[in-house]
């Protein structure tokens, strides 16, 4: 299946897709993963994938390195996590506007499965379906295998210039303003938003992008960190080294609930003083916190 309706002049490019797929074991693995993706998603997913458009060249990659064919294969385990492991429930995803948007969510769970699940939700349930771009840490490009993997599934290093460029092109960006402060916090701080960075607000004002607040309920309990082994983390060069009951931060089969809020639009100058921006950021943070509180209150259980 071609991810993009074949245009006559590009018909040879589609043939080249297969030629470009790695041969041998890797190619076979990719084929099997693609099959698994379609098995889990069925006809519905196939139709949604077919609606994805990325400005591809004759080698099937977009200028940032996103390869839709690769992404289709990589989607399989994410789909399994979404449907079978975390059994994700989404609320209000229809409020996400088409075109440029900044998704602002809370970050938790030691490993960023929350980002992955929001990404899958945007692909499976948002209208139109899209590949959400998360702004990844600046050290990700130094990690072997991780670096090209992120690039092929459309994740981009989080520099302001990259974000601006993507939003200007009408893409949807996912930003966690807490960063690792939220991701790696210990369990006693669960569902308390940590300090928000201001960068996303400058960006939203500059390119006039609506902000979609999202509350992720469930991720906090996937790998509760009892203690952060800061000294060892420093030696190893990690942002933190959480100690969880499962030793490694493997996610427990908690139930995820994603609450999408109504888009927020702000006006003002991107060059305003920090104090002015902080006021606006506070507003977003308060909205996410309120959605979080309600979500935690309303849920029936952590695992179901």
């Amino acid at each position: 299946m071609a991810l993009r309706a074949p245009v006559e002049s590009q018909s040879t490019a589609l043939v080249r897709f297969d030629a470009d797929r790695p041969k041998g074991l890797l190619g076979r693995l990719r084929g099997a993963m693609e099959k698994w993706t379609l098995q889990q998603g069925g006809k519905d997913l196939e139709a949604r994938l077919a609606r994805l458009v990325a400005p591809q060249n004759e080698y099937g990659v977009d200028p940032f390195g996103l390869d839709l064919e690769f992404a289709k294969a990589a989607l399989a385990p994410a789909l399994w996590l979404y449907k079978s492991w975390f059994r994700v429930e989404t609320h209000g995803v229809e409020q996400v506007p088409a075109g440029r948007a900044l998704i602002i969510a809370n970050h938790s769970g030691q490993l960023p499965f929350d980002a992955l699940m929001i990404g899958v939700a945007m692909l499976l349930e948002a209208e139109p379906p899209r590949i959400c771009r998360a702004m990844v840490e600046r050290w990700a490009p130094t990690l072997p295998f991780v670096a090209p993997f992120f690039a092929r599934i459309g994740q981009v290093v989080g520099t302001p210039e990259n974000a601006r460029r993507l939003l200007a092109a009408g893409e949807t960006l996912m930003v966690f303003p807490e960063g690792t402060r939220g991701l790696n916090k210990t369990f006693e701080k669960k569902y308390q938003l940590q300090e928000f960075g201001l960068g996303f607000m400058r960006l939203a004002l500059e390119v006039q992008a609506p902000i979609v607040p999202v509350a992720v309920v469930g991720a906090e309990e996937q790998a509760p960190a009892l203690w952060d082994f800061k000294a060892a983390a420093k030696i190893l060069g990690f942002p933190s080294l959480p100690v969880t009951p499962t030793v490694l931060p493997v996610p427990l089969p908690v139930k995820y609930r994603l609450h999408f809020g109504a888009p927020m639009r702000f006006s003002g100058s991107a060059d305003d003083e920090d104090a002015e921006l902080e006021r606006k950021v506070k507003e977003v943070k308060a909205r996410v916190q309120a959605m979080l509180n309600r979500g935690v209150e309303e849920r029936k259980g952590i695992f179901f």
């Binding site: 200028p63 130094t142 981009v156 290093v157 210039e161 460029r165």
Partner: peptide, 9 residues
């Protein structure tokens, strides 16, 4: 560089 923008101006 690892922290380069994808499209340097």
């Amino acid at each position: 560089r690892p922290d380069n923008d994808n499209f340097l101006t």
